[in-house]
Design a protein around this nucleic acid. Sequence first.
DNA 1: AGATTATCTGAACATACGTTCAATTCAACT
DNA 2: AGTTGAATTGAACGTATGTTCAGATAATCT
Lengths: 193, 193
Amino acid sequence: MARKQGSHADITGPKVRDAALRLFARHGFAAVSMRQIAAEVGVQAGALYLYTPDKQALLFELMRDHMEELLADWQAPDAPPTDQLEDFVRHHIRFHLDRPELVFIAYMELRNLTPENFAVIEGLRRDYEDRLEAILRAGQQSGVFAVPDTKLATMALIAMLTGVTTWYREGGRLNRAAVEGIYWDMVRKAVAA
Amino acid sequence: MARKQGSHADITGPKVRDAALRLFARHGFAAVSMRQIAAEVGVQAGALYLYTPDKQALLFELMRDHMEELLADWQAPDAPPTDQLEDFVRHHIRFHLDRPELVFIAYMELRNLTPENFAVIEGLRRDYEDRLEAILRAGQQSGVFAVPDTKLATMALIAMLTGVTTWYREGGRLNRAAVEGIYWDMVRKAVAA
DNA sequence: AGATTATCTGAACATACGTTCAATTCAACT
DNA sequence: AGTTGAATTGAACGTATGTTCAGATAATCT
């Protein structure tokens, strides 16, 4: 018994990725075994190595692709700082609510990356933070924002916004548009001059 | 070779706790073995079981004691909502900056708790959130705050404030007092009417 | 000094881990 | 119908895991 009916690399490949995503998010990278991932996919553990060099690469590629998509998906519009900030906030919330599992992994599994992989992910994260900081600095200089320390404000706002994934549940008391609006209102006031 | 010179239960006990705290924070609960903890303490793995029933209890007790200390350490002063909020914010930042490792564990290792233990910790966390929400609701009702959804605002503010531990480093550009002040300023403006 | 007891070792238990690979199976191509 | 090659199995590798426990040791008590 070996190759199963109707099974192909372009089906199993994504399945491996999805299973790893789901299991890493639920139980944590270190607590998930290759055999669990394989069982979720419906193959034996050995077959996973046709799709990933090792377990570490599975984690790293999930995180790297996530960060690269985050960066590719948004760039500051040509607009005043306040409008740029609103665009950033709303996009950040939407993007993160769409991918709660990836967000969870990207924030929780940093310490399970090898040093080289960690450096890559941290670089991408830094790039993202820099975009928000650039908006805050522009607003500070033009006088529409009052942010004594743009770096601190950047970290504070990102932590606040990303936190939405820890409590928001689809079909709950508030819908996405409402959540977006309320968060934007708080951010707007927090940085206002 | 067995009992070492100058070794006692009241010395080894806390050492086990400290080693577990440090290692769990650095590498994650699932990635740390009892033998690693034992090596850090300077004993063999078997000796750990004189101080904890099992690995899970080691994690749970760290988290429970942390949350109980957080709750015991602060109660709302008899003052207007704005002053209560300032007191909460400053205390939260101080408390969390004093215990970065415990904070990290308490936020990252929830999913490594057994269901029963998880329920306990979540209950304690809820108690803490309720305190902030009570302040926000009081301010909303008296008209000094404009918080359309107190629960959302609670989650947003706690996420923002707790995030300070992810970037603050002792001896860095900003001292604690400055950080406290800037965070309080952002919170004050964010909820202001 | 001798007995007691708290403390710790070191080996063992069964089980699980990530990874490799020869052997096998089935879909596609000739 | 026969051949090829991609996809997968299943067993094996060495190592590590959490936990238990009989035995050894050294501080304390009598």
